[in-house]
Computed example of a mutant assay.
Amino acid sequence: MQHSSSTDPLFVAVESESITRADVAGLIAGRLAAIRVPGLLSAARCHAITAALADAPMDRYDESRVFPVVAKFGPAINDHRAAGELRDDYWDAARAADKSWSTLGLPDSPRELCLAAFRTAWPDVAPGRRQGREMHVGIVREINAGLQVHFDDAVREYAGRLLDGDVVAQLAFNIYVRVPPAGGETVLWRRRWQPGDEEQRIPGGYGFDESVTADTQSLTLRPTLGEGFLFDPRHYHTVRPATDGRRISIGCFVGLTDDGRLALWS
């Protein structure tokens, strides 16, 4: 399902058989709002992943700032951020996640699934590096009760540089390995953060009251099983609650660095 208000003809989602260099460039340049790749993973692979996750040690985002509750497997950088810096315990969480995933008996790790989606489009793709160390790539998230309206922008959120190379554009990528029969839509708004928006920030939370997007063009996209989804998270976005069932995805951030590489992190 797709809906867009008729304001900016460039704020649209396109479907592709795979992620292409032209698609990535179009997103970065603002000629597209999102790229959808139906069937990036087969239903059988999705079912195998979700079955294995039943035995995985799922964690939760920091509940003092992330509400409703979001379950996850693997580190999220924003749970390890303090005063605009990445805390050292991020690396401990990354090692623990890799060790736990290796016990699940699956052929591909979240890191490999994310990297593989971009290799044909952009051969120079790799995990981002911070102070010479590879960032973790691939986080599993179960978002059943929805998300606060928010944006993601490493340039604003981290003092100096998050990665060793300057990130000149940031994208977000998800593969949906389980989708609810109803609900769970991603909503994008054609609006980025402005200083006055802080008045609508949710106290104690990471996001904003939805009034921050009032009278703004939007795009609503319902995920399908095995679909790959790429968009610019610097636009305000949210996830609607699942009416029934579970919504599980594997994802990461994707940065275009100043030397023309794609750097991934979670």
Rank of each mutant, 00 (worst) to 15 (best):
I77N: 12
I77D: 10
D79R: 13
H80D: 04
H80C: 11
H80I: 05
H80L: 01
R81D: 03
R81M: 05
R81Y: 00
R81S: 05
A82D: 07
A83Q: 09
A83Y: 11
G84H: 08
G84P: 00
R87L: 11
R87Q: 10
R87M: 04
D88H: 15
D89V: 14
Y90E: 02
D92M: 05
D92T: 11
R95V: 14
R95D: 13
A96C: 09
A97D: 13
D98E: 15
K99I: 12
W101I: 04
W101P: 02
S102E: 10
T103C: 11
T103P: 04
T103H: 03
L106E: 14
L106C: 15
P107F: 02
P107K: 07
P107M: 09
D108W: 00
D108E: 10
S109I: 01
P110E: 00
P110L: 07
P110H: 01
C114N: 00
C114W: 02
L115S: 05
A116I: 01
A116E: 05
A117Q: 15
F118D: 03
A121S: 13
W122Q: 13
P123A: 11
D124I: 14
V125D: 03
P127Y: 05
P127N: 01
R129Y: 02
R130D: 12
Q131V: 04
Q131E: 13
G132C: 04
R133A: 03
R133G: 12
R133E: 02
R133I: 00
E134K: 09
H136A: 06
H136Q: 14
V137S: 15
G138F: 08
I139Y: 08
V140W: 03
V140I: 07
R141Q: 12
R141E: 08
I143K: 02
N144T: 10
N144A: 09
N144Q: 13
N144L: 07
A145N: 14
A145T: 12
A145F: 07
G146T: 05
G146V: 04
L147A: 15
Q148T: 01
Q148Y: 06
Q148R: 01
F151I: 11
D152W: 15
